[in-house]
Design a protein around this nucleic acid. Structure first.
Lengths: 144, 144
DNA sequence: AACCCACGTAACCTATAATGTTTCGTGATA
DNA sequence: TATCACGAAACATTATAGGTTACGTGGGTT
């Protein structure tokens, strides 16, 4: 099944954005992600709607951070991308009068719900400045 | 993204199987799931390979449980269905020399790994006889 | 004012994976 | 030996993420 890589990609972009002083165009970001400017706009528009980035048209236009990295968590970005389930495991809902199906679905839902809560909690604990710091530490470890 | 509903479906089937004394055909199971006999065989074959069910050809053939429900956990069945990731969130691996991408992926992987471990642990704690019991309790609650 | 730049958006195409369907083969049983 | 039910291959269908093209709009630049 094809994965949704928007979270990974957009986090990557946001940390890079922090290093620029002037706006960065969708086209530049698209090249950093080996993709297309329209795809970048599509995803970044979701973050703009939540106030995490800003976009400007015309000369010297492009994307800028609207908040410091320290004020943006993984959960913020994850949530901005939509409400879709994070699991590839789905429940069948075709025979909702069958008590066995009900019991099966409840058991699966309980476990997946608990796992998702843990995931969201951990996402909330990580802010993007941490990612930037870790990427710099990684360079230091390599002796660069 | 399309969900993988095999786990939900096959658990449903296994609990039902326990109620039959004689083998149940793929066709009968398919009708219970509103699907096709070939789809049933495809999934059940994975469970047979792990020794959870048995199949027989010919007259009075079909599927039977090879173990009591109490000896089969949700994890057993989940694992039988394959190794695919349980998350719809994917990591990009296109610029693995970029320290930012590395830091982003590590952060996401850490959290998802932890959530998956919790999910597998919980799956291991639930055996199928529990599901059967809960489905019967549900009927009782309804006064049936 | 004319031009160019970069975003905004809609429409369409492509790739991939789960699921559904058809078909034929094979062993077991009546 | 006729029938039943699984085994398996090949193909069709469906859903979704992502890519592509095309055109519109507003804001700087010259």
């Amino acid at each position: 099944m094809r994965k949704d890589s928007r979270l990974s990609r957009v986090l990557h972009v946001l940390v890079h954005l922090n290093r620029f002083d002037s706006p960065v165009t969708s086209d530049t970001l698209a090249k950093m992600l080996s993709t297309n400017a329209v795809v970048v706009r599509r995803t970044m528009a979701l973050l703009r709607a939540q106030g995490y980035v800003h976009s400007a048209k015309g000369h010297n236009g492009g994307w800028t951070l609207a908040k410091p990295l320290a004020e943006i968590s993984l959960l913020d970005i994850h949530s901005s991308l939509g409400e879709g389930s994070v699991f590839t495991i789905g429940l069948t809902d075709e025979h909702n009068s069958c008590p066995i199906e009900i019991a099966v679905n409840k058991a699966l839902q309980d476990v997946m719900g608990e796992a998702e809560q843990l995931m969201l909690k951990r996402f909330a604990e990580v802010t993007l400045d941490t990612l930037e710091l870790e990427s710099m530490n990684h360079l230091k470890d390599l002796g660069i």
